[in-house]
C-alpha cells in the first residue's frame, strides 16, 4: 500500500513538473519539484530510505528528460546523501532553514549538471549564461520549497496516520 501511495505521488509530481510547471517559468527558469522532494525525503526519512528516494527521484527525472542519462541520478543522490548526513547535526524546522537548504541544494544540483555538461557535451553551456541563470533557479526553488515541504509534510502525516490505522 505504502509503495502504491509513493508511486502515485511520484507520478503526480512528474506529471505536474512536465506540464504545469513550465507554464510558471520566470524568464525561462522553472522550479525543480524533484529536487524539493529529494530534500524533503532526505530530512524526513531514514538515511537509507532518504538516499534511495533521492536516487529514484533523480533516475525518474533522467528518464523524463533529454539530459544525459545519470546526471540527475547523481546530483539528486548526492544531495540526498548530504542532507541525510546534515539532518543529524542541524534541526530543520520552519520556512527559513528550508529556504536556505533549498537554495544550497539547487546550487549543488546546478553545479553537478554544469560539470557533467563540461565533461560530456560537445557544446557545453557557456559559464556566463549558466551562472547568470543559476541564482534565479535556486531562488525559485527556495521560495517554492517551504510551501511544498509543508504540503508534503501534511500529506505524509495524513497517509502515515491512515496506513497505521489500516
Amino acid at each position: 500500500m505504502a509503495t502504491l501511495v509513493i508511486f502515485f505521488y511520484g507520478v503526480v509530481l512528474f506529471a505536474v513538473q512536465t506540464t504545469l510547471v513550465p507554464k510558471a517559468a520566470v524568464s525561462g527558469v522553472v522550479p525543480d519539484l524533484a529536487l524539493i522532494a529529494t530534500v524533503y525525503c532526505a530530512f524526513t526519512l531514514s538515511f537509507s530510505r532518504g538516499l534511495f528516494a533521492g536516487f529514484l527521484l533523480g533516475f525518474a527525472q533522467d528518464c523524463l528528460s533529454g539530459v544525459m542519462l545519470g546526471v540527475n541520478t547523481i546530483s539528486k543522490s548526492l544531495i540526498a546523501h548530504i542532507f541525510c548526513q546534515l539532518k543529524g547535526k542541524i534541526i530543520v524546522e520552519g520556512p527559513i532553514p528550508v529556504f536556505v537548504f533549498m537554495f544550497l541544494a539547487s546550487l549543488c544540483d546546478g553545479v553537478v549538471f554544469y560539470i557533467s555538461s563540461l565533461m560530456l557535451l560537445p557544446n557545453p553551456l557557456s559559464p556566463e549564461k549558466f551562472f547568470g541563470g543559476l541564482p534565479v533557479y535556486a531562488l525559485y526553488n527556495a521560495v517554492l520549497g517551504p510551501v511544498l515541504v509543508m504540503a508534503f509534510d501534511r500529506n505524509f502525516k495524513w497517509w502515515a496516520g491512515r496506513l497505521k490505522a489500516s
Binding site: F14, A15, Q17, T18, T19, P22, V29, V30, D32, A34, A60, Q61, L64, S65, G66, V67, N72, F113, S117, L125, Y137
Partner: peptide, 11 residues
C-alpha cells in the same frame, strides 16, 4: 503534451 522534467535541456 509535456516539456522536459529539468531546467537544463530543451525537449
Amino acid at each position: 503534451i509535456g516539456r522536459d522534467a529539468t531546467q537544463w535541456v530543451k525537449t
